[in-house]
Design a protein around this nucleic acid. Structure first.
Lengths: 234, 234, 234, 234
DNA sequence: AATGAATGAGCCTTCATTCAT
DNA sequence: GATGAATGAAGGCTCATTCAT
């Protein structure tokens, strides 16, 4: 593969990342992508075979990018508490959604978030397995915060509560901005959001030390878990 | 408008709701829809004018459906506490995402969630304003739980944390199922999830009565937890 | 045929006349027509069989209308001179293009002019033959003005010159208005135009008493027919 | 742009010119055009963007073609008389309606004549302005022939009489042929027609040196002819 | 008799893809 | 190797027509 070939290929991936992030797989067109990359319409098929293969490549590179940033933020030191771990995890997940110096618009995170939110037939098993791996990391962090008394299902639900808070800000910030126009933008916003989500979640998790109340525990009867009773009689 | 016309029209709306929920506006085709409705491709144009008008109708009916279910769950009684209000709100938002006896697959909620998550040019002002109205309701519930000392921005961030946990389960359950295959399905799951999200959020919110820690407040200091605990024990 | 049926049928013809005059056969739609007539889309097919049959009916009625007006203007009295005959013929042809008290927009004339200008497959033989009959009338008038020395072909060419001047103002006045925005409008305009065309043509015809110059007579050489020489040496 | 691309493009324009000339913009289909050009239906979109852009290109090329022929015929020499100018103008206008060695069927002229006769929304301002320019040229020729005593409105009416005679032979010869099946065809016919129209018009114009008779001047008085004759003999 | 409902053919257009160079 | 040219499938939409009542 020649040098120029590689350059064009990289430009195509970069352009495709943006277009897929903005419009999704189906709505993105290879004309948009090749035009943005300054390349020929046939270049996508030439370099990648077809549109879906290009998408796979974008997915792969975005995943690598995010994982690189992520792992550097989530390598748990022995000294860190669960709260700090969670703070690092949240920020590592959140930052790609908002972008950083090398991904100003959070394209990589948005591409992945789209894929997570909407199941695509192109979803590769490696992506699926790695997502599950991420879930395990989060499970571990949650477990540290809630202790061993809590059952696994509750841990997972807590993990989903945290993921929900994070993914709410994808596939693009416009989502949140519609609900809350005052949403702070830029890198400051990421730290603020990470702080908030961490605080919100830590506060909750620290009260999950007891067993889960039975289902429908909030429905009008007051004899459920005592802690709960205290809570909603306040 | 005759009887048969209304029947066909309703079938088209029903089919379109499913197809739009599954594939989104852009990817859905009127051929899919009309075939599913047992009608001709031209029937969409005949009954609604064009594809977008049909989509608007689907949006409208889904909104009405959800609001009807929702309002019956969110009418706040004088005796209810904030926690019960939140429980009702969460379940009312969550239920349409999972479906009920009249919407087994949660199509209405999924159609709306798609629209909320990805801004569509067809987004009508009435939908936008009503989304904002919902946000205000949630703000009120949060405010009841956190008290008056908390600033408005924090209230909104808490609202977004709650919405994030809810919308995580849209546009389809496959999202969560990918992360957590053990996710309970069906109506039981809704109650369980609503209980969890409510509990998770109430626990968190009740610790938010104090001022927000300064940004990066979790970075290195260990006494925040204690201050929070103190608050909680009030 | 019931009374109401006839009413609807007449309204359809009236509406169709307008729409066909404005848009032509192909571009006119039966929805436009039936809506303008306050009738059902199926009414056209019910009353006339298909779109083309409706068009035939419009053509027929427009032709009858124009012929009625025309014949009343072209019945040559023994006392009339050729110039007066021509004036009557021109006005009778021109007036339907501009409309009169019963056809304010000249719809009948415009429908026919469209048909004359563009050959339609639906062109019935009766229309063709009657057009030819009109041509014979005009031939007669021209012959009166030019005398017997002029050959038949020249007579026909003169007839076409006159018809061209008239049909120039069809299928709608907008044609002429584009060239000459100052074109007088309304009934006054018809008289003025008829006067002009008659004057223009009579002046020309009165000089056609001699034989036609040979072809290319105007190309640089001056030794053609003497009368001609006189003309262009002036 | 490669060689082959230009070939296909030219074939499309050629095919479109024929189809548009025969059927008009609305009735022409790109399937007809592309099939006639030996190309795919998508080729029109590829080379021109859409049907209307192709039409604009046809209009432009037809206009250029006609103008090239026209200008070579209408460059007025100092020595030429008004009659020769008119002869050149008429032939230059008429020839494209009948075709020449490079446009056997007069497609270019017929396309333009359609556009002139029926206002299309796609009518470009340049075409409109150039039509008006042509009208000015004709006005000048007429003015030379009638002298300065004649008012401007009469000059314009005379111009329209001449244009009417010319455009009578468009959009296709079938028009005239219907009236006068003996109409000579081919290039010989053009010269004959140009001679006739010129002669007819020059004869008329040379009698227009006096003031216009008052409106309805032909109604009932018999002495107008004499007055006209007097004018002519001046 | 008369009409609202429904249809299928055909339109223009878009698009990922393939071809020829 | 790389690209401009070309294509066929499919999309939304329009329309005259037919169907069922």
């Amino acid at each position: 593969m020649s040098h120029q070939s590689q350059v064009t290929r990289d430009q195509l991936v970069a352009a495709a990342t943006r277009v897929f992030a903005d419009h999704g797989f189906k709505s993105a067109t290879i004309r948009q992508i090749s035009h943005l990359a300054g390349a020929n319409v046939a270049s996508v098929n030439y370099h990648f075979g077809d549109k879906e293969a290009l998408y796979q490549e974008v997915l792969k590179q975005s995943f690598d990018y995010v994982m690189t940033r992520h792992s550097s933020g989530t390598e748990r030191t022995g000294a860190s508490t669960g709260a700090l771990d969670l703070r690092a995890f949240v920020e590592a997940m959140l930052r790609p959604l908002f972008g950083d110096e090398a991904d100003l618009d959070g394209l990589h995170g948005r591409v992945l978030a789209r894929e997570v939110i909407e199941p695509a037939p192109a979803m590769e098993s490696w992506l699926r397995s790695l997502i599950e791996k991420q879930a395990c990391v989060l499970d571990g962090i949650v477990r540290d915060l809630v202790g061993q008394q809590v059952d696994d299902q509750t841990v997972r639900l807590c993990g989903m509560s945290i993921m929900g808070q994070i993914l709410f800000y994808s596939p693009c910030r416009a989502v949140a901005a519609r609900f809350y126009p005052e949403l702070p933008a830029g890198a400051i916003g990421v730290e603020l959001l990470a702080d908030h989500i961490t605080r919100f979640s830590v506060e909750a998790l620290q009260r999950f030390t007891g067993p889960a109340p039975r289902a429908s525990g909030f429905e009008g009867r007051g004899d459920s878990e005592e802690a709960e009773t205290a809570v909603h009689l306040l």
